[in-house]
Amino acid sequence: IEKTVPVWHPDVRYFELEKGGSIIGGVYMDLYAREGKRGGAWMNDYRGRRRFVSGSRIGQTQTPVAYLVCNFTPPVGGKESRLSHDEIITLFHETGHGLHHLLTQVDELGVSGINGVEWDAVELPSQFMENFTWEYDVLAEMSSHEDNGAVLPRGLFDKMVAAKNFQRGMFLVRQMEFALFDMLIYSQSDKGRLKEWPQVLENVRKEVAVVQPPAYNRFALSFGHIFAGGYAAGYYSYAWAEVLSADAYAAFEESGDIKATGKRFWMEILAVGGSRSAMESFKAFRGREPQIDALLRHSGFDVEAA
């Protein structure tokens, strides 16, 4: 439900989520690009869920509020904004983070919502939501031609899927190369890390690379993720979160009761935040540890043939 509240720009809109007449949380949506605005897209928390144990609000529950910020093409010439498919993917991705924060049922601030969730699992809900943008029925409901109102043609959608999966195997192998190098280089001593990294990288490439770079290649010197981007020994989280999200989405593909599966996803993944380990939460939802089959299938591989 949209509510009128003070905002920092006319483009910003505020919505509250309600269930059974009670407010679950709120979200500020700042979706359009403008001069002076930071680029990119992100979800951040304004406040988290907590139950007050002292003071004038003792016993009351603070509901979570999130920011959802993007840089989409703004409406021009009096027309509605038309988002590209890439922008839709971004919107669904950040919405996944928002749902993770807003649908928590944990009352301890430090582990409610997105707080306290392990780095290699915090992208599960966001990447999970991206799967819906590759469902034709979903896009058919939300797409329309600007002039004639026609929905996205099925043939064009099939070409989009084919383009998404083009050389997907090469991409995954490259991610494995980066992740293994990252993990191994941080397993060296401080002194050895500086002296032996070329040999570490060469050994990894011999194991997993399909195309060997030339000897003068110095990729590692510009691998900012692991030296200045906060991913030190954690780059693997990109691929691991994809495994988790694809396997979680597969539960819905396999389910005969989507509503019950959705409620279980809420209660076992979204609701618990960082109050227990991500692996415990995943197993509580899926009934087993993660498997890679769904990611391979969503990437266009013939899992049964493999």
Rank of each mutant, 00 (worst) to 15 (best):
T73C: 15
F171D: 14
P213M: 02
C70Q: 07
Y67F: 15
V53L: 03
P75N: 12
S143M: 01
A233Y: 08
M170L: 10
K3L: 12
Y67M: 08
P198F: 11
G229T: 04
H93Q: 04
A150G: 01
K37N: 02
F15V: 07
D147R: 11
V12L: 06
V122F: 00
H145L: 04
F282D: 00
G36C: 04
G21W: 09
N203P: 00
G234A: 14
L102M: 11
G224M: 12
D257C: 02
F301I: 05
E141I: 02
E196C: 05
V208K: 03
Y136H: 05
M170S: 12
S277G: 04
G262V: 03
Y186H: 14
R13Y: 05
V151A: 10
V117C: 09
S281F: 09
Q62H: 11
S222P: 06
T95R: 01
S222K: 11
E253K: 15
R154I: 06
A163C: 01
R50I: 00
H298I: 02
V117W: 11
V76F: 11
R264I: 04
G20E: 13
R276P: 06
R168A: 10
K79V: 10
G192H: 13
Q291G: 14
E123L: 14
E87W: 14
V161F: 01
G59A: 06
G116K: 06
S275E: 12
P75A: 13
K195G: 02
E196I: 10
F72Y: 15
L124C: 14
V200G: 15
R82H: 14
F128N: 11
A251I: 05
E304Y: 01
T104F: 01
G25S: 02
E253S: 13
E108D: 03
S143C: 00
R82G: 09
R276V: 04
I258P: 15
G59F: 07
Y32K: 10
L221Y: 08
G273I: 09
W42A: 10
G77P: 05
E254R: 12
Q291C: 00
I24D: 00
A220K: 08
E16V: 15
W134C: 09
L180F: 00
G39R: 04
Q127C: 09
V161G: 03
D257V: 05
G273A: 08
A140E: 14
G113A: 05
Y216C: 01
A284E: 04
Q62A: 01
G26H: 13
S56N: 10
N165I: 03
S112M: 06
N44W: 00
G273T: 11
A260G: 08
P198H: 11
L99E: 07
P125C: 01
A278Y: 15
W197G: 03
E141K: 11
L194E: 10
D11G: 03
R286E: 00
G224L: 01
E141A: 10
M170P: 14
A232K: 07
A41C: 12
S281L: 03
L201R: 04
H145P: 07
P75T: 02
